[in-house]
Write a protein that binds this DNA or RNA. Sequence first.
DNA 1: AATCGGTGATTGAATATTCAATCAACAATG
DNA 2: CATTGTTGATTGAATATTCAATCACCGATT
Lengths: 204, 204
Amino acid sequence: MPERRDLFEANPDDTREAIMKATYDALSRHGYADLTIQRIGDEFDKSKSLLYHHYDSKDALLVDFLSFMLERMEGTIPLEQADAADERLRIGFDHVISEIIDGDRQDFNRAMTELRAQSAHDDAFCEQFSKNDRYFEQRVRVILEAGIDQGLFHDVDTEQVASMLVTIIQGATFQATTSTEPDLEAVRAELDAYIESRLLVDDA
Amino acid sequence: MPERRDLFEANPDDTREAIMKATYDALSRHGYADLTIQRIGDEFDKSKSLLYHHYDSKDALLVDFLSFMLERMEGTIPLEQADAADERLRIGFDHVISEIIDGDRQDFNRAMTELRAQSAHDDAFCEQFSKNDRYFEQRVRVILEAGIDQGLFHDVDTEQVASMLVTIIQGATFQATTSTEPDLEAVRAELDAYIESRLLVDDA
DNA sequence: AATCGGTGATTGAATATTCAATCAACAATG
DNA sequence: CATTGTTGATTGAATATTCAATCACCGATT
């Protein structure tokens, strides 16, 4: 049971953080399509007009929110908790998948999926997500390369394998947020089998 | 180059089909979030009021549209074009991936992703997609079981592997529709490598 | 008194939905 | 055959609602 650093404190002191939390709550409760300034205001202990004091528009607020969240989420990825590449890969995926599964985050995860789906029509969103994707894929590649150097992994095309791993994670996220009966346990198990059969050098 | 049965005729005779096509066009052009009855009406050679003659509400129209499209898409999946399970798998994935990549469908695919992301908040959407998911996964499992029977595939847990394959396809779709530089070629290549290393019995 | 954090009421545009009124086709009736 | 009623398709205009954004104003702190 890894300790959970919560995304927000119960009642944040500074206003921006309070707005972010209100947005988080409203987004979780209503989803992106039904997210209105009114509803953000409802989750906020100050008035909704105040939001316009801090942001030029609803869109500006959401863009800031997205960048805030992605940054914070990158920050929670466990770093350097092991030397061996296979261990690092395992720890990383455990973390990511536990976030996908976490019941308390369901609604929010769904909202993030909506946001991302929306990003085709919003350049600012798009840019945020692209940055996040590159970061994540890069992290995976570094681990893969280390694994190959360490003689733990076969000498695979790291770009290709990293693409696949990212695709699997995104597929799992998408399913978890949009499917009624996602079988994430099965995916997790098969992910291990994939790594085993495709990456791991076995010297038993 | 597989022959392309188009999703719609140029000018459909019956009204429902015409409405479906108008909805398709409007959805492709504007995306789900900006889809209005007005805009569907604009793609339609009749008046927008007529839409309410055929459907009770915007939502009812969209639900019918979704079921219409999913059914039609299921219909285009190539069936029984080969006996060998590995061939069937290959043909199936070729088809699906070509649909994901197809530039003419980009905008529509994006809209479907938005719709799906939306389904967390719309039971009717949700049901449609779930039905579609079950259908697809079932098809994959049948092929896997045949492959094992034929001695072509290892005796894997078909439920688990099917889950993974579906996850990969959904991940690829999600990336193709929401990412700026999706590397689907890499995913495709790695998918083959996965099947090779995890499924195929090699008797060279 | 001037600035800053904050508010409730209000506005204007966008949008889904309704509706009364035609129109076209067609079947039954005289 | 001509007339008459009937039904579904179609329309343009009207209505009702939602929502982002603005504004005039308040109270405290400097």
